[in-house]
Design a protein around this nucleic acid. Structure first.
Ligand code: FES
Ligand code: FES
Lengths: 160, 160
DNA sequence: CATATTTAAGATAAAATACTCTTAAATATT
DNA sequence: AATATTTAAGAGTATTTTATCTTAAATATG
């Protein structure tokens, strides 16, 4: 039972969301790990969730998904955790985003119409296809390691 | 009460959504109107909703919002409808998208962190800020009229 | 003036997304 | 073997987004 004022208010405050929360949290966690450069060790999810101020259970689930998709490996029990299966130098942002958001992440119509560009491109298609391709290229050529060079405190918004 | 299979299944099929449904429907409707070039007349919302296969009430609400924000004008009663207040040649995509999705549409952090670039840019910032700027420039320099040149049947996915 | 038409406004409902909680499985330590 | 630690799996809840429904206001027409 929400008033229209609130309803419209919410609509006014919509933000451009290129990737979902899932993608945001996943990327932040992976960059956090990449920045540590402890490729051989496992990271504790609870600690990571506290430092990044992300719900522990939610983050666990997201990382679980990345493990199932072969980007990460996990180890249960004391001193267990989550770690890279392939070094962050070899993981592109495109790989991460496609794992988190879906394989066809870079193939969707700007207007949400089905089958972008296949037969009947929408009026936005030429306009959008070029931009999207640039986006894709950037994501394909940037690795997690490329982004892990800056100090953590300044750039990942750690909790404290 | 949903199974994890479905839960993960849904997560697998997420799509890149640069603009929300609101934005998609709004843009499609405005392009439909721009393509007709009947600048002086009012368009019937029900007919438009049928042709574009968008819920009538939902589309009404979206267009209502654009009217309230000064992009469109409406007229009630028989032969009433919705029409441009300024000609589509003068309406940029940026204007539309900002009206539909929020003013700071082109200023959000890719990772959803607050205050993009203001004090503590995230690791994605340099990478993202440039792409976002290109996106913004394209949206700022493209008008509704620019996109209304192609035939409607082929490009707006009219219902039938 | 009565009636039909059309958008405006508000409330409600459904679906999707985001998040939390509980229990199970694996592993190390004692 | 018993216990503590840590991720995996599944179920459940909350919030946001999307869509529908109902009633009101404005306007034209007979
Ligand atoms: S069909 Fe719409 S962007 Fe390709
Ligand atoms: S701070 Fe993250 S993109 Fe600018």
């Amino acid at each position: 039972m929400e008033s229209l004022v609130m309803y419209l208010c919410r609509q006014n405050t919509l933000k451009m969301r290129v990737i979902s929360r899932l993608g945001e949290y996943g990327l932040r966690a992976l960059m956090y790990m990449a920045a540590q450069k402890n490729e051989s060790t496992y990271f504790n999810i609870r600690l990571m969730s506290q430092e990044l101020d992300i719900s522990f259970h939610f983050l666990t689930k997201i990382l679980q998904g990345l493990t199932q998709r072969g980007l990460l490996q996990s180890y249960r029990g004391p001193h267990g955790g989550i770690g890279f299966l392939v070094p962050p130098e070899q993981i592109t942002l495109a790989t991460v985003v496609k794992a988190l958001e879906g394989e066809d992440f870079f193939h969707n119509c700007l207007l949400g119409l089905p089958g972008c560009g296949e037969r009947q491109p929408c009026p936005m298609h030429v306009f959008w296809a070029e931009l999207r391709e640039r986006l894709r290229t950037e994501f394909e050529t940037t690795t997690l390691a490329d982004l892990g060079t800056q100090t953590l405190e300044q750039h990942l918004r750690l909790k404290a």
